[in-house]
């Protein structure tokens, strides 16, 4: 029984980690607190659904089509909306509040557009919904895929960030955006790239989720908040932290549901989250700023 709980907990956590990593990139490196993050996820869930139901393109192939689109979308949003705010904040230092307000507006726009196009109905389809035996536990193949993708993305990005020159640049911007230009780093370009990358991760999360979760256009905020909780728990801007925190939350939920009471899963999530913050105010892997 414990192995079943561990395996299904890890797989559930994989989904959380997947949606959180994009947000941690966007906040940690681009300094944008993106409240419209969940709407992006939902948008790409609908896109995957549309490709599958209208054109018969399976979500895996859909992913290949949608990811570049997501990158372009993120690139555009940052360029048009965020860049002026970032520039302005060099004087006023108000980027956090400004980005909250602006992305709050963006949230409504994306949601409103989706309402017009997709309506408010629950949407659901099945893809790869077959059981796979992992160490004696039966796991849905689509969830396993999401878990695999999370670990893969987490691993690749972690290696890229720590082992490549490009990664060093990004980390430099994350740690000291003021000083980075001194060593010849184009902060703006790096931030824009990171934001677009984050959008791409959101899209991959959306496509994965669409395979096994029912969604409506109003659900974005649920994902934003779940992602935020994971990001904060792991430490802002820390990819590995997001991965670990996501998996941890999945484990906690599954264990509470199995051994204590399914009614307390979400309470336990927030309890764990709050305790982690009280124990380490900057998250599991975060460094205290003060």
């Amino acid at each position: 029984m414990p192995t079943t709980a561990i395996v299904s907990g890890l797989v559930l956590g994989g989904t959380y980690a997947l949606i959180a990593m994009g947000l941690t990139l966007q906040y940690g490196i681009s300094r944008i607190m993106n409240l419209a993050y969940g709407e992006t996820i939902i948008f790409f869930a609908f896109a995957a659904f549309l490709l599958y139901s209208a054109f018969g393109i399976n979500p895996i192939a859909g992913l290949v089509l949608l990811l570049p689109l997501a990158f372009a979308f993120g690139y555009l949003v940052y360029g048009v909306m965020m860049q002026p705010l970032v520039r302005r904040s060099a004087r006023s230092g108000n980027l956090e509040v400004d980005s909250i307000l602006a992305t709050f507006g963006l949230l409504f726009v994306i949601q409103g557009v989706m309402l017009v196009f997709f309506g408010s109905n629950y949407t659901s389809y099945n893809y790869l919904n077959v059981g796979v035996n992992v160490l004696g536990a039966t796991i849905a193949a689509n969830r396993l895929l999401a878990f695999g993708l999370a670990v893969l993305i987490g691993g690749v990005l972690y290696l890229a960030l720590t082992r490549t020159r490009w990664g060093t640049t990004i980390r430099a911007v994350a740690v000291a955006p003021q000083s980075a230009p001194l060593v010849g780093i184009d902060v703006n370009r790096t931030a824009r790239f990171a934001f677009a990358l984050g959008t791409m991760l959101a899209a991959s999360g959306g496509v994965m989720i669409s395979m096994y979760q029912t969604f409506t256009v109003s659900m974005g905020v649920i994902f934003t908040m779940k992602a935020l909780v994971v990001v904060i728990m792991g430490g802002l801007g820390n990819l590995l932290g997001a991965l670990v925190a996501g998996l941890l939350l999945g484990l906690v939920e599954t264990f509470v549901a199995t051994y204590i009471d399914p009614g307390l899963t979400l309470a336990a999530t927030y309890l764990i989250f709050l305790s982690v913050l009280l124990w380490r105010p900057a998250g599991l892997f975060g460094k205290a700023t003060r």
């Binding site: 307000l101 409504f108 726009v109």
Partner: peptide
């Protein structure tokens, strides 16, 4: 029917 879109655009405009 277009409440969200208009509201969102207004918000963005206000910030700017």
């Amino acid at each position: 029917n277009h409440y969200s879109i208009i509201l969102g655009l207004l918000f963005i405009a206000i910030v700017f």
